[in-house]
Amino acid sequence: MKFLKKITKAIYRKYHAYKESTYQIINNNSDEWVYICYIAQVFYHLDDTQYLDSHQNKREAIVIANTFHKLGYNVYIQEFSSNKKIPNLNFTIIFGIESNFYKACKRFPQAKKIYYATGAYFKHQNKQIYDMTNYINSTYKSNLTYKRLVKPHKSIEIADSILQIGSNFTISTYPEQYQSKISLIHQSTQINSQSQIKKYAKENEYFYMGSGGNALKGLVLLIEYFHQHPELYLNIVGPIENDFYNTLKNQIGNNIKIWGFLNVNSPQFSQIIKRCNFIIYPSGSEGIPGAVINSMKKGLIPIVTPWAAFNEINNYGFLLEKWDIESINKGIKWSQSLSIETIEKLSKDCQTYVNQNYNITNFEKEFNQYIQAVLKK
């Protein structure tokens, strides 16, 4: 009976922790503690491949926690948006994202504070959301709400160091006085490794993939452009918000196919990729989009804005000058000017570049090196 009660209590504690979005990895109670405010629920889905494949940050969250654990720390992980009180464990390292990052830093001022920047500076992102949504509302006399706004915070001011997913373009969105704190890291991809080089797609259709926030992702420009060019074909993968669709539905002709969310490792996703040579992604604010590097891993050539680009973009694709139709037109014209041989070479180069740089093994290596370097300061 006592054993049964013990098991029941253990199950209750685990369930309660899951509901509260926390998880602990303990070496020894006497070891120092690290507080991570990022993704906690992933640790309750470690055997769920479909869940882990839904976004590259799932496996990266596991790597982050395990790295601190291997370095000899006890690790307390809390969902970044959780309202649960931060425990009094005398943390010596605070790592993660807002809003709990700032709360933890204020509570434990002597801890080493490492901010994990997964996107552009919040003031840049919010301005882009306002501008790009206002463009749609004024053009189509609609009333779209502002989606994916970031609540103002002082994480970069309080942080000792900033680890940034992104590029030099991403760093440039931050105030100059804080840019010296920032170090870049290559994120991973969740698409399975490709052993076969993608063949040239005779259909030469175009590809777009994005998550929520259709206005911020620049999807309106693509719909407008392809509406004006019915001879071209656009595949859209990812969720479409109802108000966005209702506003733009009259611009969506037979040459624009909306597929909705697809698993990037599914046969249907691969079949769509086979008909395309280019991914076009005119986003207004990102780090480096997983949509872009996952598509490159499949052999697509990127046509992207600076906010969706990596540092070496000019070696592998086309950088859109501005967020407007004319820039989209230049990118499309560039893609149509390339020979089959050039497209095949760029496609192969894109696959090789992503396979070598954007994988979970490389992420783990770079993260380990970064943390050890920060701890030595």
Rank of each mutant, 00 (worst) to 15 (best):
K154V: 04
R275L: 12
L232S: 00
N137E: 03
R148P: 00
P239V: 02
A215M: 02
L234R: 10
F244A: 00
E203S: 14
T173D: 04
V237D: 01
N250S: 13
N235K: 11
D160G: 07
P267W: 12
D243W: 04
Y174M: 01
Q268E: 15
I258L: 15
V264Y: 08
N235E: 11
K198E: 08
K154F: 09
D160W: 12
I185C: 02
L184F: 00
F269Y: 15
N168D: 14
D160I: 06
N255I: 07
I236L: 09
Y225I: 05
Y225D: 02
N235H: 15
I197H: 07
H229V: 10
Q251N: 13
G260Q: 03
S211D: 08
A215E: 05
L232P: 01
N168K: 15
P239M: 01
K274S: 15
E157K: 13
Y174I: 00
I162N: 07
G218E: 12
S195P: 00
K199S: 13
I191A: 03
P239F: 07
I171E: 09
V150R: 11
L216R: 15
A201V: 09
K198S: 07
S155Q: 03
K274L: 09
H229E: 08
H153Q: 11
K151D: 06
K198I: 07
K154W: 00
F226V: 06
Q194V: 10
I197G: 01
S266L: 10
N277A: 09
S167L: 12
L222G: 10
Q190E: 11
P175S: 15
L216I: 15
T189S: 11
G166V: 03
L216M: 14
G212P: 02
H229F: 00
N235L: 02
D243E: 15
H153T: 04
N214L: 12
W259T: 03
N263W: 01
I272T: 06
G166S: 05
S188D: 04
L219K: 05
F261S: 07
Y146T: 09
Y233A: 00
Y200T: 13
L149F: 03
N204R: 13
L234T: 09
N246H: 14
L184Q: 09
I158W: 00
I182Q: 08
V264E: 13
Y200R: 01
E157M: 06
Y233R: 12
I165R: 13
I162E: 06
H227S: 09
N137Y: 08
H227V: 02
I223V: 14
I252W: 03
K154Y: 04
L163K: 12
V264W: 07
F278K: 09
P282N: 07
G212Y: 04
G212D: 06
Y200N: 02
K151F: 07
P230R: 11
R148W: 12
K151T: 13
K257I: 14
L222F: 12
F269P: 04
K274V: 06
S167D: 03
I256D: 02
K198R: 14
I256Y: 08
P282A: 07
V220K: 08
C276W: 10
N168I: 14
S270M: 10
I223P: 00
H153V: 08
F207E: 00
T170Q: 05
K198A: 10
S161R: 13
F261E: 06
S180T: 14
K181S: 00
Q177M: 06
G213I: 00
Q228Y: 11
